[in-house]
Design a binder for these strands. Structure first.
Lengths: 355, 355
DNA sequence: ACCATTGATGCAAACGTTTTAATCAGGCTA
DNA sequence: TAGCCTGATTAAAACGTTTGCATCAATGGT
């Protein structure tokens, strides 16, 4: 048996085309690449070339093209992981913007590990990405190409544009709402340390609590373990974790009338734990989530939550990046802060009278 | 020897390295690329090169490398869209497998449009992908590189490996369950025509219904409109659509004791509609979903559903593709059929006695 | 001493483009 | 007739790699 040389779907190249037309490679390239010099060509020649290209089904080799010029129209996206709510929302916004403007992206998960992040950055630079969108990372050093950090930090001296949520407002809205309803003893779920958002959020919550004269009971403050924003597909899903931590809260035996969770998923898990323990939500305990994932409105009770404009955050990041790529001059780095909304539904109600 | 200070922004290339070491480009390349010819090199030289590469922070240009050799270690993934449950589950499995074996992927949404699909394929081929994973597509013609079709069809004469769910078993399990509970009048949500899975699933349901001697009432069979598997981020989310179609079922005035939805999302929406109309689930109506998304267990009542092993489907597709890439010989195309499970929870119960 | 052998490295072509600068054929000017 | 544009095309270098083959020095066998 002869070595199974594959059907050799050999692509048509400029050289083939040139030979076929009895023209030089240069001319063919000019006719097709839409370069400024295309005007110099005879109209007839150009049409001949275009016709032949269509006929022979010529497709330019992007690798070669990028190697020679500098454009790759490719950008790198680093996500913490591929999960249900959070990542999907952002990605959706990112994808729309990018593809609208002719860019493609490569995506890789960094799982909140600095080593993975660095490796991925290196690898993508090697593949010629023109810029980065970095989600939930801490960017240590400046990069050789423009970058936008989304829900993360970019080092003291700011190496990149940033898009972030107004965590102060989120905390203010929520604690205001709960305080108005008479809640004074509130339990919290914190995101785990690896999560960049988590720190900022907690700071904002503490400050807002002080303003409202609310004491934070450290025994009622639980820090989630798993990748905070989902890690949806591991054995211990985010819902499950919320459930267990909901139980833990009850086990402390301490009194609390409300829970402000780190995200909707853990909120929903905890809510279920409370219900399974015979408590009524919001009669006995009010629950507030974070994100406003699609299903939030369809649970029972429907979930009161802080809505992050995920899709818009994705779009904004892309726009920022592409604008910077377009303008060859580098202006000062920007910070775009997007506002959250508090979506009040049925999982919050008046605080239960003291027992 | 003067300390080689390199120009900023510019990446270190083999040439730079060679100049710095006073060696030829070829030698440096051999020392670093792990080529078979590396053995011929003097051990000392090789170490010198490696040391310098580390020092100067050399990173190979993947574009150039790919242009010369044929390997790009890049594969193209086409998804219907970026959505919560379905796509995220598959992608998660795909990503793990691919990155474990050193491959990267580019992703683009085809939105169930043939034109978008073709364009994306072309573009990715131009970028040198070595293979494709095509999700929920109908593959018309053979491709010049290996492909795996996941939950789709690959033309009559089979142009690709396929991974699919055993829809017959899914239908059988579900109708068996409902039939056992005494349900005889069952409503259905069908996926929209653009969805490749939908057709197959419906065929299987019809056959299983016949086997169980169940009549399908066309008035109680509603076809979803939106991108069937989510289109989560459009104004009319999947939940909302399920809700509206749940209402529609009630508006027909026809009697039914169970609903078999097209996916969990629409099932949850419909369930809520029934509840809002004062019906009890499962007391008055039983509801069965499809997919087993993470939140399914956390709704009230928790959702009985057909579990698709999404992650495993993703993994299997990747494995199939990479195996085919590794073995240069082309064996016959394979079809891998994965088995669903019926996860019985609290949204199904005995059929209500006839009114 | 001589040639063959080995071991280590360099030359140069190739991958498919883009682009700068050069060539070439006419027609026009003087 | 020579010199010059002008308009259309092409030759060739470059982008950063990999790799078949050539080269070269040192070694070893006879």
């Amino acid at each position: 048996m002869p070595p199974a040389t594959l059907p050799k779907g050999k692509r048509v190249t400029l050289k083939d085309l040139a030979a076929h037309l009895d023209l030089s490679i240069a001319t063919v390239s000019r006719a097709l690449s839409g370069s400024p010099q295309a005007d110099a060509l005879a109209v007839e020649t150009r049409q001949r070339v275009e016709e032949a290209a269509r006929q022979l089904n010529y497709r330019p080799n992007a690798l070669a093209r990028s190697l020679q010029g500098k454009r790759t129209f490719s950008i790198g996206v680093l996500v913490p992981e591929i999960s249900e709510g959070y990542t999907a929302g952002l990605m959706s916004g990112i994808e729309v913007q990018l593809s609208e403007r002719g860019y493609r992206y490569q995506m890789v998960s960094h799982h909140s590990k600095a080593a993975l992040l660095d490796e991925a950055l290196d690898m993508m630079l090697g593949r010629g990405v023109e810029g980065f969108i970095l989600i939930a990372v801490t960017l240590q050093h400046a990069l050789p190409v423009p970058a936008v950090v989304l829900s993360g930090t970019a080092g003291d001296d700011e190496h990149a544009d940033r898009v972030m949520l107004d965590h102060d407002r989120a905390a203010e809205l929520t604690l205001d709402h709960l305080h108005d309803l008479g809640h004074r003893r509130i339990a919290f779920f914190r995101g785990h340390e690896g999560n960049v958002d988590a720190g900022e959020r907690w700071r904002a919550i503490c400050e807002a609590a002080t303003r409202h004269d609310l004491a934070i009971d450290s025994e009622l403050t639980l820090t989630l373990r798993g990748a905070a924003y989902g890690e949806t597909f591991t054995a211990e899903g985010g819902y499950r974790e919320g459930y267990r931590y909901g139980q833990k809260l009850l086990e402390t035996g301490r009194r609390f009338t409300a829970l402000f969770a780190f995200n909707d998923i853990s909120a929903i898990g905890a809510m279920r734990a409370f219900q399974d323990a015979g408590l009524d939500v919001p009669g006995d305990v009010s629950v507030v989530g974070f994100d406003d994932i699609q299903s939030a409105a369809y649970h029972r009770p429907s979930l009161t939550t802080v809505r992050q404009p995920l899709r818009r955050m994705g779009e904004t990041s892309s726009r920022l990046l592409l604008d910077r790529l377009a303008a060859t001059q580098h202006g000062a780095f920007q910070q775009v802060v997007l506002e959250p909304d508090l979506v009040v539904r049925d999982s919050t109600g008046p605080a239960k009278a003291s027992t």
